[in-house]
Amino acid sequence: MLLLNSTIKPIPVNSLKVISILFIILILGCKKQAEPVEKMQNQKYSGPFFGIEPTTTPQLLAPELLASPSTEYNGTFSPDGTEFYYTTDMPTNAYITFTKMMEDSTWSQPRIASFSGEFSDYDPLFSPDGNRIYFSSSRPKGDNENSKIWYVKRTDAGWGNPIRIILTGEEDNEYYSSLTHSGTLYFNIWSKGDIYKAIPNNTDYTVEALSDVINSGENKGDPFIDPNEEYLIFRGYDDSLGRGDLYISFNLDGEWTTPENLGEPINSSEHEMCPWVSQDGKLFVFASGRLEEPINVKALDPVKRINGTHNNGQLNLYYMSADFIQKMKEKHL
Rank of each mutant, 00 (worst) to 15 (best):
M40H: 15
P162G: 00
E229A: 05
E293Y: 15
N296F: 08
L241S: 03
N131I: 05
P162N: 08
T184Y: 14
Y175S: 01
T88P: 07
A209C: 03
L22P: 03
L66M: 01
D253M: 05
F119R: 08
G183H: 11
N161G: 02
R290F: 00
T71R: 11
D222A: 04
V13G: 09
S127A: 08
F234V: 00
L185G: 14
K331H: 15
E170V: 11
L283Q: 06
D301H: 07
Q109S: 07
L300E: 15
L315P: 01
T168A: 09
S138L: 11
E255W: 02
S70H: 10
T206H: 12
P162A: 09
G142W: 12
A157D: 15
G236W: 12
T258K: 15
A67C: 13
T258R: 07
T87L: 08
G75Y: 01
T88R: 11
N74F: 04
T309N: 15
K148E: 12
S268C: 11
H310V: 04
G160Y: 03
T76S: 15
T71Q: 13
E230C: 09
G289Q: 07
N261A: 02
S182F: 09
E218W: 14
E229K: 10
G130P: 04
F119D: 13
F50Y: 03
C274K: 13
V277K: 02
I8C: 06
G221Y: 05
N5G: 06
S137T: 05
T71A: 05
R139V: 03
T87M: 07
G244K: 04
D280H: 12
V18N: 14
I25M: 07
Y205S: 01
S211A: 12
S20R: 13
T7C: 08
N312M: 08
L26C: 02
A94T: 15
F224L: 01
I19N: 10
N261L: 04
Y237V: 07
G169A: 07
Y176V: 04
A322Y: 07
T106P: 06
I199K: 08
T97N: 01
L252S: 02
S269F: 15
L28Y: 14
S137Q: 10
M273L: 15
N219Y: 14
E64N: 12
I225D: 06
E38C: 04
E174V: 05
K39A: 09
Y319G: 00
G221V: 06
T55A: 14
E174F: 10
K100Y: 13
D121H: 08
L26A: 12
H332P: 02
V207M: 06
N261Q: 02
W159H: 09
I19H: 12
Y73T: 03
D253S: 14
C30V: 13
G221Q: 05
A299Y: 11
I165F: 09
E64F: 11
D156W: 13
F284G: 09
L61P: 00
N219Q: 13
Y45S: 05
